[in-house]
Design a protein around this nucleic acid. Structure first.
Length: 263
DNA sequence: ATGGCATGGATACCATGA
């Protein structure tokens, strides 16, 4: 089973890329972030035509997440628990049933948090704290769980071209990285780091300053696996070539393969 | 070329992002 995540930076602007990539990569489950539209405006028919079930949690203009799955999505639930006043569309989870049991996938778009001296960073840290609580609860079930999305966290210096330039940034500040490490401390595995120690495994390149051409990237799109999922991990990939397409997203897809028997 | 952006949604620029 292949599970992928991609921040598309507007699903309507990126629909052609998304359809081509879905055919090439052939993921079974996809987590999309920054769809940047309300649910009614999501191009669901074109995606359903490729054999996917679709659930969305969108909002006008900003944010927005979606789950695509070749298997029926059960228990599709938007919003991360812990703050009823948080109206940003940044989280949706779903469950699929296989012969061997269920797989739960949480699709998330973690707040950017810049500038760090503002309430935006406070919001980011609180969101990460809520994600930690959510993960604690879900891990108790001892089922395959995948947290996939744009975490807006650079986990370590090897995950950024020029660490010195990012020390004060909300994506790389010590408190941000510590909060991410707390997730791993629960027993979650960073899938990419389970298969390689190599530096420069970037998933995002800024549109500005020729960042792509200079390979000034950062690794901020992640798939975190519960022990029951990590035990089944057989492969991880970053579809870097997608960043070279015409009018691309600034993020590229990341995928994992799990050895789970199909339904 | 010595500075290089993209998106949506109100326009005839702005907020947001990372």
């Amino acid at each position: 089973m292949r599970i992928a995540t991609w921040n598309v930076n507007s699903v309507r602007q990126r629909l052609d890329h998304l359809l081509v990539w879905l055919k090439d990569c052939a993921p079974d489950i996809v987590c999309l972030q920054e769809i940047k539209c309300v649910d009614e405006a999501f191009p669901r028919e074109a995606i359903e035509a490729l054999g996917y079930n679709v659930v969305t949690h969108g909002q006008k203009t900003f944010n927005g997440v979606a789950l695509l799955s070749k298997y029926p999505l059960e228990e599709a639930t938007p919003r991360l628990a812990g703050d009823d006043d948080d109206l940003h569309a940044r989280f949706i989870e779903g469950v699929v049933s296989l012969k061997t049991g269920v797989v739960r996938v949480a699709c998330l778009y973690l707040p950017n948090g810049n500038p760090p001296e503002t309430e935006k960073y406070t919001y980011k840290l609180k969101w990460m704290s809520r994600l930690l609580e959510y993960s604690k609860e879900r891990l108790k079930t001892e089922e395959p769980l995948i947290l996939a999305g744009d975490f807006n966290v650079i986990p370590a210096p090897r995950d950024v071209h020029n660490p010195a330039a990012w020390v004060g940034d909300a994506l790389f500040k010590p408190q941000t990285r510590e909060s991410f490490q707390a997730l791993l401390g629960l027993g979650l595995t960073d899938a990419l780091r389970a298969v390689t120690d190599a530096p420069s495994q970037y998933t995002f390149w800024d549109y500005q300053a020729g960042a792509w051409q200079k390979n000034w990237g950062i690794r901020i799109d992640h798939l975190l696996l519960s022990p029951q999922a990590a035990d089944r991990l057989t492969g991880v990939g970053i579809n870097k070539h997608v960043r070279a397409w015409e009018k691309p997203s600034d993020h590229v897809p990341v995928w994992i393969d799990l050895d789970l028997a199909a339904a």
